[in-house]
Simulated assay, not measured.
Amino acid sequence: MSSNRNDLDRARAAWRWRGQQRPDFAVTPGPGQESVWDYPRPPAYVPDSRHVSVYAGDTLLADTHCAMRVLETGSPPTFYLPPESVDMAQLTPSDRRTFCEWKGRAEYFHVTDSSGRRIDNALWRYPDAFDDAAPIAGWFACYPSQLRCFVDGEAVRAQAGGYYGGWITDELVGPFKGEPGTGHW
């Protein structure tokens, strides 16, 4: 997809749910829980001071109390980590690129753990994020399906589907985008 204004407008308009009203199929959150159906589209960028740690195997890759949660309708939050919290020596640039109609063009990175095992395209970032996504420009996100991720010691569960990088924790209720049949939810 290009960043041409007409293409962007078409892609943005394709989304059915935008967080204004929780659909009937959404789970009602209990005390201390959040419904991903209350998140907005375009996404919100929310600072999070909880302890976030990411491991490649047993090797610590990132550690911070200064993450940014990206909240978008129907998806578990994606956590973005400041560059200074990531061990850059474990990263190798990838040729993979993707495009998000809300954030811009993403570049990807392979991770090498202490045993020398390479985990392909495990992290990404938006080096030149669109204006609304400026709070995450240059920050790293990762796939909890490929890396071990923790929020305040709780092991994160991966969002289904392989494309999305949402972090599922006990505080969230769905259902979550990424399952078969959820395109343009």
Rank of each mutant, 00 (worst) to 15 (best):
M1R: 11
M1K: 11
R5A: 15
N6M: 14
N6H: 14
D7W: 07
D9W: 10
R10C: 09
R12A: 10
A13G: 13
A13S: 14
Q21V: 13
Q21N: 12
D24Q: 11
A26E: 04
A26L: 05
V27N: 05
P29T: 08
P29S: 12
P31Y: 11
P31W: 13
E34M: 07
E34P: 00
V36R: 00
W37I: 06
W37T: 07
R41I: 08
P43E: 04
P43N: 04
A44S: 10
D48F: 07
D48P: 01
H51S: 11
V52A: 08
V54C: 01
D58A: 12
D58M: 09
T59A: 13
L61Q: 00
L61H: 00
T64Q: 02
C66V: 11
A67K: 00
M68R: 04
S75L: 12
P76K: 02
P76D: 03
F79K: 00
Y80V: 00
L81P: 00
P83H: 07
S85P: 01
V86M: 02
T92M: 14
S94A: 08
T98R: 02
E101A: 11
K103D: 01
H110R: 06
V111L: 03
V111G: 00
D113F: 02
D113K: 07
S114D: 15
S115F: 06
S115Q: 09
G116A: 08
R117P: 04
R117M: 10
I119F: 07
I119H: 03
N121E: 09
P127W: 09
D128L: 11
D128I: 06
A129R: 00
F130Q: 11
A133E: 04
A134M: 09
A134W: 09
P135S: 05
I136T: 01
F140V: 04
A141M: 05
Y143N: 08
S145E: 13
Q146A: 12
R148M: 11
R148S: 14
F150A: 05
V151Y: 01
D152Q: 08
D152G: 04
G153T: 09
R157F: 08
R157L: 15
G161Q: 06
G161T: 09
G162Q: 08
Y164V: 08
Y164C: 14
G165Y: 05
G166Q: 03
E171K: 12
P175D: 10
P175Q: 08
F176T: 09
K177N: 12
P180C: 10
G181N: 10
G181D: 06
T182S: 15
G183F: 10
H184P: 05
